[in-house]
C-alpha cells in the first residue's frame, strides 16, 4: 500500500534521512519510534510532499507519487496529522471537518452550492466527530477550545479526508492519560482497511497498536520488525527502550 525506497535527504552537512525504505501492506499499522531528532517528522514531511527528498521513491497503492504536489497526494488518499496542531483557528470545529470532508467528496471547488450544507459532507463530519469524540463541540470555534480538543480535531481533520493511508505524527503528544485511552479506543474502531503509520512516544500505546515497528536513529532505519521482535531486540533495549522506561 505504501512503499518507500531509498529515501535520502540532507540539509547541508546534516543527513536527516539516510536510505530509508519501508513497505506497508494494506491495513497494516506501523509505529515509528526513535529519539528526538531521529528524522521521524522529516520523513513524514517527505512522504506527504512538504519536503522534497534528494532521492528515492514513494509509492502509494503502486503509484509513484514522489513528484506530485502536497495537495495531489492528499487527494490520492495520503493524509496526515501534525505533531504541532495545524488547525483553522478562526472557524468552528464543524466547519473545519466540513472543509476536509468537502475535499474527499470533491465538493471543495463547487462554486455555486454550499459544500458545508451538503448531505454527504455533513454525514462525514458527523461520523468523524463521533469517531474522535467531538460531537458536542462542532459549533465551538477552534481558537476557543482546550488543547485536548484541538488535539482530537488534529486527528479528525486527517480522518475526514477519508484517506487510504493515514500518517499520524504523535497524535497523543501533550495530552493526559484519559485521552491516550480514548485514542487507543479510536484506533480500535478504525477500519482495518486503512493503512496507518504512527509516530508515537507512548510505549504502551505503541506496542499495543502496532502490527510492525520501524525504529529510526540519525535518519537511518536501525530496526524493523514486529512488536514482539522489538521487545526481544537487545540492541533496542539498550539504546532506546531502556532509556525511555526511565523517562
Amino acid at each position: 500500500m505504501l512503499e518507500v525506497s531509498d529515501l535520502c535527504k540532507r540539509f547541508g552537512a546534516l543527513e536527516v534521512t539516510k536510505n530509508v525504505s519501508m513497505r506497508l501492506e494494506k491495513g497494516e499499522r506501523r509505529v515509528i519510534l526513535g529519539p528526538n531528532g531521529a528524522g521521524k517528522t522529516t520523513l513524514f514531511n517527505q512522504l506527504v510532499g512538504e519536503i522534497i527528498p534528494d532521492s528515492g521513491s514513494i509509492k502509494v497503492n503502486g503509484q509513484e507519487v514522489g513528484d506530485w504536489s502536497v495537495e495531489k497526494r492528499a487527494r490520492f488518499g495520503l493524509s496526515r496529522s501534525y505533531q504541532q496542531n495545524t488547525l483553522f483557528d478562526g472557524i468552528t470545529i464543524g466547519e473545519s471537518l466540513g472543509l476536509a470532508a468537502a475535499v474527499s467528496t470533491s465538493k471543495s471547488m463547487w462554486f455555486w452550492k454550499d459544500s458545508l450544507q451538503d448531505a454527504d459532507v455533513k454525514a462525514i463530519v458527523r461520523d468523524t466527530a463521533e469517531q474522535v469524540g467531538l460531537e458536542d463541540n462542532l459549533g465551538a470555534r477552534v481558537s476557543d477550545v482546550s488543547y485536548g480538543i484541538r488535539r482530537q480535531l488534529e486527528v479528525g481533520l486527517a480522518l475526514a479526508t477519508r484517506p487510504s493511508v493515514l500518517l499520524m505524527d504523535e497524535p497523543t503528544s501533550g495530552v493526559g492519560p484519559e485521552m491516550i485511552g480514548a485514542f487507543h479506543r479510536l484506533l480500535g474502531r478504525l477500519s482495518r482497511e486503512l493503512t496507518i503509520v504512527i509516530i508515537e512516544h507512548d510505549m504502551d500505546l505503541a506496542f499495543d497498536v502496532a502490527d510492525s515497528m520501524t525504529v529510526l536513529n540519525y535518519g537511518e532505519v536501525v530496526f524493523e520488525g514486529t512488536p514482539g521482535e522489538a521487545r526481544e531486540s537487545e540492541m533496542l533495549q539498550q539504546i532506546y527502550l531502556g532509556a525511555w522506561d526511565d523517562a
Binding site: Y82, D89, K107, D118, T161
Partner: peptide, 21 residues
C-alpha cells in the same frame, strides 16, 4: 459555495488546506 468555504480555510491555514488536498 464550496469554493468560498475552501478559500476561507486557506486564509486561516494554507498549509493545512494543502495537506487536506
Amino acid at each position: 459555495s464550496g469554493l468560498g468555504r475552501s478559500l476561507v480555510g486557506i486564509m486561516h491555514n494554507e498549509k493545512r488546506s494543502r495537506a487536506l488536498g
